[in-house]
Design a protein around this nucleic acid. Structure first.
Lengths: 169, 169
DNA sequence: CTCATTGCAAATAATTTGCATGTAA
DNA sequence: TTACATGCAAATTATTTGCAATGAG
């Protein structure tokens, strides 16, 4: 089995929370005069059920399993919509890909350990860092909205692998 | 030929430190059998003198003020080289651009407060966060190489501006 | 001489956009 | 009926690469 680092987020997402996001989206669409279409609903629900940090391509694959005709552009446009109305966050890690995560507070408070060898992503949470962030923001008079904290290094697995091939070089 | 460019970091970068980086680069090039060319030297020195967080395009503009024939590809290739040998760090902020900064320890240990309104970047330093990072890396068995810690919010100036136009809405 | 480097243009890759057609409201 | 939405393909943007010509060691 592959490394399923950040455990199945889908299970963690309670219906109640998703309902909250659906309402958020609906309110935004109403305000902007946007329309609810089959594709949009499908993409949004697929996003809600997908693993954390989905890329557009991954999402599109899942979406096309339901409706093979959905195009790239629609997924891009829908994810942009979700980002605008505060349902999703865009994240850019080292690879040239934009990934998305559900914009709940928990997501807001976890951060990432990224392996520079195998690109695996491990999430961590550290309230003491949160505290310090607030302190710093206050120090500089910033009103904080979000943050991004990524640590890059070698994961235990890759360290082990590197050791085996040390003789080679 | 005295570069009449923006003040800023150039003054802060002591010759001694630059000399260290020149040595680092030279050692790397020697090891790899790479050659020292006019373009490379020009790009590297321009990078040393440029403001922090330069983009390829900004750098190219500055380089072309000296030698109009230098191509994009050479700048990309040279910055990649600088990144490989540990002289520069790549950074990706919100816009779709890769920016580079000198890889000294101070740069390694400062992080960024980014204003979502005016895009201004404020650097900060907080040793207690550094400590916590090490602690977390150890907890997950990671060997840390670098990190990125960005906080997004509204800077004091933009908060003030927002206040003035509050009556408007 | 030999092989790395350069500049250019063409190739990728990710994302965006124009437009004719489809479709919520 | 009236725009908004979609799918496709073409356009953009950032970056990379192939290649013939150049130049460092």
């Amino acid at each position: 089995m592959a490394t399923a680092q950040s455990a199945g987020t889908a299970d963690v997402r309670s219906e109640a929370r998703l309902e909250h996001f659906r309402a958020l989206l609906q309110a935004y669409m109403l305000k902007k005069g946007l329309r609810s279409t089959d594709q949009r609903r499908l993409i949004v629900e697929t996003f809600f059920r997908s693993q954390n940090h989905v890329s557009i391509e991954e999402l599109l694959t899942q979406v096309r399993a339901q409706d093979a005709k959905v195009g790239y552009a629609t997924v891009y446009r829908t994810l942009k919509l979700l980002t605008e109305c505060g349902v999703a966050y865009e994240r850019r890690f080292g690879d040239g890909l934009t990934r998305y995560e559900l914009a709940d507070e928990e997501a807001h408070h976890h951060d990432h350990l990224i392996c520079v060898e195998c690109s695996s992503i491990t999430e961590f949470e550290e309230p003491r860092i949160e505290e310090l962030q607030e302190e710093i923001a206050t120090r500089y008079g910033f009103k904080l909205r979000s943050h991004k904290h990524e640590m890059y290094g070698t994961c235990p697995d890759c360290q082990a692998k590197a050791q085996k091939s040390t003789a080679r070089n």
